[in-house]
């Protein structure tokens, strides 16, 4: 949970209570009138003279009631939209179909690891289409829009791991675009951020070989199978060293999938489009470093 949880829930519960009350009154009078004034009991209807007073009440009371709801929602919104100046800043890269979190010292992570009780400001960056950064437990949600700087912030109040979901429909693997938000003690967080290897409970890709884990963490496996089945992109098994038919600037040719080819496919995936697959992969140089590309290539070499 976070400080925002209670702020949003307060308004939600207020509106819920008012709504249940109103619904009860409406249904009560509807059923009461239908029974009390049924034709068999009340054969002759009596006209009700229109009363300006009653009609004024019908306008004023609902107006006042919804005004209180508006103000309650507004107060919470102001809170959600005012990240304190001293916040820890995390860049959130959203792309089809994975999340990547980058800290101010360049540390990258597939899960959002944050210190307990600190203000965290998430700056949202989309590489392709609109995604929704949504942490249900913290009651925060904000779209990541390509070409537009947006943010969400929170201050976690209990340790544990929570889901980060994509809430803006983004295509085939929208519902699998899930990461974890893990709240840890500040000293552990700081050690981890400085490069110490710590496996936090609830992490998405624990206990995996390093190269394979990288493919999971960067979302490659959303589209590329580690077996030989065909998904959105070409499968990885047996890829390295094989002959690949590609279209380069509108011309079809056959190339060998060597280190240079794989490097280019990651950095500039639209350059050589593999025959039979759509050109949908976003350029990935922001989310994968040269060193990591090297590790991916050596992993693929071994994936026969």
């Amino acid at each position: 949970m976070a400080t925002s949880t209670g702020v949003v829930d307060g308004a939600l519960i207020y509106i819920l209570a008012m709504s249940v009350l109103l619904l009860f009154l409406i249904v009560f009078f509807m059923i009461y009138f239908a029974v009390r004034y049924r034709a068999s009991r009340n054969p002759v209807p009596s006209e009700l003279p229109e009363s300006p007073l009653i009609e004024a009440i019908w306008v004023i009371v609902p107006t006042l009631l919804v005004t209180t709801m508006f103000i309650y929602g507004l107060t919470g919104f102001r809170f959600l939209r005012s990240a304190p100046a001293n916040s820890l800043v995390v860049k959130v890269y959203a792309r089809q179909w994975s999340w990547l979190f980058e800290y101010d010292n360049g540390k990258k992570s597939a899960d959002l690891i944050v210190p307990l009780g600190k203000n965290v400001r998430c700056e949202l960056i989309s590489a392709d289409v609109i995604h929704g950064f949504y942490v249900p437990a913290f009651r925060i949600q904000q779209d990541a829009v390509p070409g537009l700087a947006t943010y969400a912030w929170f201050n976690a109040t209990t340790m544990g791991s929570y889901y980060i979901l994509c809430s803006q429909y983004c295509g085939r693997r929208h519902s699998a675009m899930i990461a974890k938000l893990i709240v840890v003690p500040p000293d552990q967080f700081e050690a981890w951020r400085q490069g110490k290897k710590i496996e936090f409970t609830g992490a998405s890709y624990a206990n995996m070989p390093a190269g394979e884990r990288l493919l999971y963490e960067r979302g490659c496996v959303s589209c590329h199978s580690l077996e030989d089945n065909k998904m959105m992109g070409p499968p990885f098994k047996g890829l390295f060293g094989s002959q690949v038919v590609v279209t380069t600037a509108g011309v079809q040719r056959t190339v060998v999938a060597d280190s240079a080819y794989i490097h280019k496919s990651i950095v500039d995936p639209g350059a050589d489009i593999v025959s039979g697959f759509p050109n949908t992969m976003p350029p990935s140089k922001d989310v994968v470093s040269e060193d990591e590309i090297g590790r991916i290539i050596s992993y693929l070499k071994g994936l026969k």
Partner: peptide, 28 residues
Amino acid sequence: LSFIFLFSIGGLTGLFLGALSPNVQLHN
């Protein structure tokens, strides 16, 4: 009559969504 019941639920839950901070939780 059932229109009134169902429309009231639809309308009242619209108040949740029209309110700013609850919408942040419930949107999409």
